[in-house]
């Protein structure tokens, strides 16, 4: 039940390592350093003397500048994996290295920005002050805070809304503020947990494109949890497909789409082939439980 399930070697990709050695041949990642290295990671929750294996045998490495999506059915542990990296949850087994540090050290050095499913803005703060919240916690001087807030708000295209309060914004705008907030202290790693899950499809498309451009223009490494195959394929350089009960990695699919993309890429055969591969892996993960 734990590691070494007999069917695991069948999808060699799940180990991550052989696959990444293989794809290390790709020029853009060959010399990039690993931002996240997980080896045989597992999480077990115990509640009311009932044990739930939330995550088991996850081995994965993410390199700088990558955009990695985690996709899978509900309860497959993709959010748990993200929370492990963020040190919001503790691993029961295995090792995890973030930026060459333990997750706790990485968190204390503010290595990553985290975007939650909901915008989680502070309703009593206006947009600019929400974005400045992490900077206040870091103790940056006022002028620096304002300069950085102005820059990231410009980045997400919300400069003219800096004085508004969260309830005066649409859901999509609120989530953009929350992305700006996560970027304000200039992390090298952006962790996003279904940030567009609660939004309508048109808003989602816009934000997906926006996020892609943001990532392309910076040297950010991104981990993105999603339910949506199209979103994952459009945004990612690599797609990690997970399955539930217990949560584990079924397959890691490399994307050969160009780094620069627009929404039209979704009509190309390469895109459709990738989407098909992801769906097949999802079905496979679902079927063998």
């Amino acid at each position: 039940m734990e590691t070494g399930r007999p069917d695991k070697p069948d999808h060699g990709e799940h180990e991550g390592r052989p696959k990444s050695e293989q794809s290390d041949a790709a020029p853009e990642r060959s010399d990039a350093r690993a931002v996240i290295e997980a080896h045989d990671l597992g999480v077990t929750f115990t509640a009311d003397s009932q044990t739930t294996v939330a995550l088991t045998g996850v081995t994965l490495s993410v390199h700088q500048g990558e955009f990695v999506s985690l996709i899978g059915p509900s309860g497959c542990g993709k959010t748990t994996l993200l929370r492990l990296i963020a040190d919001l949850e503790q691993a029961s087994t295995g090792t995890l290295v973030v930026n060459g540090l333990t997750p706790e050290e990485a968190r204390k050095r503010r290595a990553y920005g985290y975007v939650f499913q909901a915008p989680a803005l502070y309703p009593w703060r206006n947009v600019a002050r929400n974005v400045m919240l992490p900077l206040e916690v870091m103790g940056l001087p006022r002028a620096e805070r304002q300069a950085r807030a102005a820059r990231v708000l410009n980045l997400v295209g919300l400069s003219e809304f800096r004085g508004r309060f969260p309830w005066q914004l649409s859901g999509g705008m609120q989530q953009r503020v929350s992305i700006a907030r996560a970027l304000s202290f200039e992390p090298t790693l952006l962790l996003m947990d279904e940030p567009f899950g609660a939004l309508d499809e048109i808003t989602r498309d816009g934000l997906t494109l926006h996020l892609h451009e943001l990532w392309r223009r910076t040297s950010l490494t991104a981990m993105f949890v999603t339910h949506s195959v199209l979103e994952a394929v459009f945004l990612s350089t690599r797609i990690v497909v997970m399955s539930s009960r217990p949560g584990r990695v079924v397959s890691v699919i490399d994307s050969d789409l160009p780094r620069e993309r627009d929404l039209d890429v979704r009509e190309t055969p390469e895109f459709l082939a990738l989407a098909h591969a992801v769906r097949a892996a999802l079905r496979e993960g679902h079927g063998d439980v």
Binding site: L88, R110, F116, A118, A120, Y122, L133
Partner: peptide
């Protein structure tokens, strides 16, 4: 305080005093 907003403070590695001043206190109003 909303658990997500508390997690957020944790990702900033905020001190207890900061969590109090910037989250708990305003929430208590």
């Amino acid at each position: 305080s909303d658990p997500m907003r508390r997690d957020l403070m944790r990702t900033y590695s905020a001190t207890d005093a900061q969590v109090f001043a910037k989250l708990r206190w305003p929430d208590s109003m």
